[in-house]
Write a protein that binds this DNA or RNA. Structure first.
Length: 269
DNA sequence: CTCCGATCCTGATGGC
DNA sequence: TGCCATCAGGATCGGA
């Protein structure tokens, strides 16, 4: 489900957590991508939440002694719920707050994770992540340098979080359309000028998606329970057979590895 | 080092 | 209506 815009939408919806106490941690199903560590409860309970940060697709729930590292995987979501509302079978964890509320973690496929670290930036899952695409200069030059000598397809380079953080299959396809680049093209054989355009396209795509509250294809809901509406703006993802919004050519789909490509065979070269 | 496929798990969807 | 196959927004791991 969630790529950078959906995780950022979730984060922004939960900024009210700042300053609130953690009263309890209730784990109904701890078998996620990795088991929830036994120390998480003792580390969080009776601490005050300082802030909720994002790095790539990870959320960092910071308390004075460290942070809970949260990843939503393919199907996860976080929202504020009333403790009195009975959790569903897929609501695996409640971080109990004051006022009868909790931060409720739902993850049907259990590809997400909930971990603890005193130094989250140094955690193995986070320490080798590539740059944030929305921070600092646009990532075109960085992508150009990272891609030299690489033969893999540019779509796969964009999905590699050690190269650049936070981009998933929807936004890789969308940004490549905006930049006019064929997603199957070898990353190492794309010019610096085209990477410049791609860097701008990545930024534009992600910013617009965040402004729209993310993309809801099936079940993504922000922390306020509302869907995003960027799916109305998608140029290629899921639009196979439909007319390209620029040239009218039918959008094509193909497989690259286990995941689908969507592109306009006329606009993207 | 680089790259690719297999893998974890459940729910939604479409064809027959 | 039921059953089965296929697909899904992620990312790690192992092996070629």
């Amino acid at each position: 489900m969630p790529e950078l815009p959906e995780v950022e939408t979730t984060r922004r919806g939960l900024l009210g957590l700042t300053g609130r106490p953690v009263l309890d941690l209730v784990i109904r199903e701890g078998r996620l991508r990795w088991p929830i560590p036994a120390e998480l409860g003792p580390r969080l309970v009776n601490q005050t939440i300082l802030h909720l940060d994002r790095r790539a697709k990870y959320l960092l729930l910071r308390v004075p002694t460290g942070a809970a590292i949260i990843h939503l995987g393919m199907s996860g979501s976080l929202r504020i719920a009333a403790v009195a509302d009975a959790p569903g079978p897929l609501d695996h964890v409640d971080i109990v707050l004051d006022g009868g509320q909790c931060l409720r973690f739902r993850d049907p496929r259990r590809f997400g994770c909930l971990l603890w670290s005193e130094t989250p930036e140094q955690h193995p899952l986070l320490k080798s992540l590539g740059p944030e695409p929305l921070e600092g200069p646009p990532p075109g030059p960085h992508l150009f340098l990272s891609s030299r000598g690489r033969r893999r397809a540019i779509r796969d380079l964009l999905l590699d979080s050690e190269v650049i953080a936070g981009i998933g299959n929807i936004y890789a396809n969308e940004a490549l359309f905006l930049a006019g680049i064929d997603p199957r093209r070898a990353a190492g054989r794309i010019s610096a000028a085209r990477y410049e355009r791609l860097g701008q396209a990545i930024r534009t795509t992600l910013e617009r998606a965040i402004a729209a509250g993310g993309t809801t294809l099936r079940d993504f809901l922000g922390s306020d329970g509302r869907p995003g509406y960027f799916q109305q703006t998608l140029q290629v993802y899921g639009r196979q057979g439909q007319a390209c919004r620029i040239c009218g050519t039918a959008i094509r789909t193909a497989r690259l590895g286990a995941r689908s490509l969507f592109f306009c065979p006329h606009c993207q070269t």
